[in-house]
């Protein structure tokens, strides 16, 4: 296959970027999208030109490293897959493909197609965890968890933090990501002691990072490679309301003794 790529090139964080047209020749329909880019980069390097910078790691859809807005779709046109799982048989000989980085104030471009997604790390660092004392592991059956709850928690735990939700959202909102973590830990008994503090802190960090707010378009759900559902955002909203209503100042907490 012969393809024309219109790729966003940007030398660095503060550099001005623009689209560059690159021709990919001899592309196998069995190769993945990233393998196609590898081939293009080999050719660019052989010609002494700068290869296209893009994020990738596991190449089996579980690490959340790869990104790419492909012809206006995060992770390409297929449902429930990441860019590394997208195959070139999806395209026809002679196609033109526009490749852009995720666009959000909170995800600044580092180079070409690579964006800085450490905003997600900082959201997790303020509350996306459960505190567990070290020591011998407790018996797995000490805490009975219903199958429905376990399944719902597992569905949200599937989030790989790729940022496709932010990329797809017309408001560049991170609420699907934040809600996945809030609903994952907030549904499990281990997550209850820190539940309200977790929700409050993660929402505050999300706002500080400069993400937008949800207006219930549903683009995030459609783009999510792990098919995480939007009803988790409703869960987050309710949890945030409850957390705000039950919030107490430090002095009041001390008074509780």
């Amino acid at each position: 296959m012969r393809l024309t790529l219109k790729v966003w090139r940007q030398a660095g964080r503060s550099a001005r970027g623009g689209f560059q047209e690159v021709v990919a020749e001899g592309v196998s329909p069995d190769s993945s999208f990233l393998e196609m880019l590898d081939g293009v980069n080999e050719k660019l390097e052989a010609e002494g030109r700068e290869p296209i910078a893009f994020d990738h790691d596991c190449r089996e859809g579980i690490c959340g490293s790869c990104s790419l807005m492909i012809n206006g779709h995060p992770h390409g046109p297929d449902d429930g897959v990441t860019t590394c799982q997208l195959h070139m048989r999806r395209y026809r000989d002679g196609d033109t493909i526009v490749i852009e980085p995720w666009r959000a104030r909170a995800f600044p471009v580092i180079k070409d197609l690579i964006v800085d997604r450490s905003a997600f790390d900082r959201i997790i660092q303020v509350g996306g965890f459960v505190s567990v004392n070290t020591g011998s592991a407790q018996d797995a059956n000490n805490l009975p968890i219903g199958k429905e709850v376990a399944d719902l928690a597992m569905d949200t735990a599937a989030c790989i933090g790729c940022g496709a939700c932010v990329a797809a959202c017309p408001n560049a909102s991170a609420m699907l990501f934040v809600s996945a973590k809030a609903a994952h830990l907030g549904r499990l008994p281990q997550g209850q002691p820190e539940r309200h503090a977790r929700t409050r802190r993660m929402v505050a960090q999300m706002d500080t990072e400069g993400f937008g707010g949800c207006t219930n378009h549903g683009e995030c759900e459609a783009a999510c490679p792990k098919e995480i559902k939007m009803w988790n955002i409703s869960f987050l909203n309710r949890d945030f309301l409850q957390a705000s209503l039950s919030e107490r100042s430090a002095s009041q907490r001390a008074g509780d003794g």
């Binding site: 219109k6 966003w8 689209f19 807005m69 012809n71 206006g72 779709h73 526009v98 852009e100 666009r103 959000a104 104030r105 909170a106 797809a168 017309p170 408001n171 560049a172 909102s173 400069g210 993400f211 937008g212 707010g213 207006t215 219930n216 378009h217 549903g218 683009e219 759900e221 459609a222 783009a223």
Partner: peptide, 26 residues
């Protein structure tokens, strides 16, 4: 909220295709 949402994406996509949103929502 609209001002915050606009500010959250200073640079637009050259090509963006909506998948699920509705005329009413937009």
């Amino acid at each position: 909220l609209v001002a915050e949402n606009r500010a959250a994406r200073p640079e637009r996509y050259a090509m963006a295709r909506s998948m699920k949103t509705t005329f009413a929502a937009r």
